[in-house]
Simulated assay, not measured.
Amino acid sequence: MKNHWIEFYKGIVTVKASGRGTERFINQLTKHGILVWNVKRLGTHAITFKMKLADAKQIRSVARNSDCKIEFLQRLGLPFLMKRLLKNSGFLIGFTLFFMVIFLLSNMIWGIQINGANPATEYKISKELDKMGVKVGKLQFFVDDAESIQRKLTDQIEEITWVGIDLRGTTYHLQVVEKNEPEKLEYYSPRNLVAKKKAVIVQMFVEEGQPAVRINDHVKPGQLLVSGTIGTEDQPKIVPARGEILGETWYKTDVIFPLKTSFHVFNGNEKRRHFVKIGGLSIPIWGFGKNEFKQFETEENDKKLRFLKWELPISYISKTEREKEDVTKEYSKEEGLEMAKKLARTDIKNQVSDEAKIKGEKVLHHSIDNGKVKLSIHFQIIEDIAIEQPIIQGDSE
């Protein structure tokens, strides 16, 4: 008989038959359709053979008519293995539960240490981590990765400049750099303050030095604003001129804005998939089937699993596929002009300092050509126009 291994799943028994009619007994089994194999003779009046477990009930009736005595020597196959496992089920269940508990505990968050933050900032960080689900007792593969946590903390908490996150075993270690570091004392060398561009003076805040201009004066690039030389002609004293000189400056910018714009947006439809990755093999455990999205973006979160202090070559991967669609926005001429102005303001703000303010604006020219708004606009900006100019001995104002 070929492929005896198939019968292993149904059960196989090894039988010993002894008596004077062993040959007749084998023939009777064959006539009854009972399949036997590996028939071996043991001495003059005994044989052994293998047969299916399902036919074992019929063999006794055949043996009575053949003047043979039968004995079951060995039982093999899945039914007998299952029977043994059931006998030892308590040990098996206990071992399995123990392994699962250790595995879950090894992938749980057991500690969060925050270093470098004062108590108030540390409290805010703890509250924000709690909102994100990063807390003691939470499974690690159900929380965001370290990079996402770092980005969210930096965005949500104004008091911190930077936070580094390191997961060591079952503990998150956070190193925080706060913004409110003590200011370093600056050393100022002797200097003047001069104009960096053409402007009209609107306000002056001189901390040290001698003002050389007044409000409403027109100044040119390089013109002296605050002198670092004070005192009398007989007893001059050179100091580092300091202050803020606000002037009205002028900018012109040209922008082009299309009346018809196409862009991508997420429509709210998404499909989540979960995988267990062993080595290079990814095994899907939830979210089967292909999505029907024409366009989508995939966000993937990969969590390494651990057992005690060891990192296993097994990962839990969650993928979120978000559907996106193309949207075309058409603007009227009036809307296009307003959007062009906004774009021009943004362009100007990128050219000046954060403290500068837009005092006024005037459209010099605008037109609509080939579905685009072309705009030329003039801005009046209030900004600090002072820059430093070192004073070298022998220089004169």
Rank of each mutant, 00 (worst) to 15 (best):
K83G: 14
V352W: 10
Q223Y: 05
T161C: 14
F296A: 12
D347A: 07
A17T: 11
R214K: 14
T298N: 04
E292Q: 15
W162G: 05
E300F: 04
I283W: 14
V62S: 13
T261V: 08
N38G: 07
V176S: 07
L104A: 12
Q113N: 11
D384K: 10
K372C: 03
S353P: 04
P236N: 09
N27E: 11
I278R: 10
T96H: 01
D155R: 15
R75F: 14
S18I: 15
V15D: 05
H173W: 01
E248N: 05
P221A: 07
R64D: 06
F275T: 06
Q393T: 11
H218G: 14
K2I: 15
K260Q: 09
S282M: 15
D166L: 03
K260C: 01
V276G: 08
G371T: 15
R242Y: 02
E186S: 02
A241S: 07
K10P: 06
I102F: 05
Y331F: 10
L259V: 04
S66W: 06
V134P: 06
G289E: 08
A17L: 06
V206Y: 00
F103D: 11
Y188A: 07
F99K: 00
D326Q: 04
L312H: 01
I26A: 09
D144F: 07
K40A: 06
D347I: 00
S66A: 07
Q380E: 10
K359Y: 14
F103G: 04
D55V: 02
Y251W: 00
Y9L: 02
M82A: 00
R41I: 06
I314S: 03
L224P: 00
A212H: 03
G11T: 13
K40Q: 10
K319R: 08
